[in-house]
Amino acid sequence: MRFLVKRIALMIPTLIGITIISFTVMKMAPGDPTSLMTDLNPNMNEEAVKRIRAHYGLDQPWSIQYFKWLRNMAVLDFGRSFAPDNRPVIDKIAERIPITLLINILSMVLIFSVAIPIGVMSAVKQDSMFDRVSSLIVFIGFAIPTFWLALLMMILFGVKLDWLPISGFRSLNYSHLSSVGRILDIGKHLIMPIFVSAFGGLAGMSRYMRSNMLEVIRQDYITTARAKGLDERTVIFKHAFRNALLPVITILGLSVPGLIGGSVIFETIFAIPGMGQLFYQSVMMRDYPTIMGILVIGAALTLVGNLLADLLYSWADPRIRVSD
């Protein structure tokens, strides 16, 4: 409990830092947000521009603007979108978050369930054929641009073989499907996006698991376990594997920003209406309030991911709690 309180207290300066950087980014725009509405509008005179600037508080000094913005942020008020719908930014984000989280969580599950066995196998059979082949695939995995992988999969499975839909989140006849059919429909649409978003992580995670495992196998307690005559299976799975798994929890937290950031690319390619696609659309039409909202929320989600990973780690490894 004390650990939890301490961890949360440590988050506050980071959170403030996030808002300062976001605010700085916002202020980098040449001119200001109102120029988008005023520059090309022939009905604007100087008086009207001034009124608009005053309305948005842009005539005040930066520090005041920052604290006002911070106050709004604290109650999750990100203002209204500049997009034609003019809806509150928080509503637009809120309806998009679930699908992005769903895809990210599923791809995380995929990463863990595939990468960990591969990593362990490669380490246990170091320099075997399996190890070499998986190392090669991992190496390609690090270098492959995810959007290109997405394109190739779309060509193969979508266009040539026609097995999977290449865009969207559900079919046009979705509303006519039974509930089982609906789940299958969404599942079919999500196979490629999840695979694509997991691919990079797969490479990293299996490599990481492999090196952890190699590290642990060299430890004295593994030699001890072998020396007392335990069979290799017990040594590997009971003694080595569980210790090698611990640091992976940290990676869980560290991989959150990469996954969230990656959602921009695959959601745009596969036309999935998630937070990444919203972000891309906002960037393209310079919808500043939405950009800022997603930027801050994305960073905050990362912070929460790190916190969860830390808690999980301290729960799994008593040494952390004791030394703290």
Partner: peptide, 21 residues
């Protein structure tokens, strides 16, 4: 602390946001 804060941003989000501006 600055490093920690920067690492919190999904880097692709940050880059896109700056480019947008």
């Amino acid at each position: 602390r600055f490093v920690d804060v920067m690492l919190c941003f999904p880097s692709f989000f940050l880059i896109l946001a700056v480019i947008a501006f």
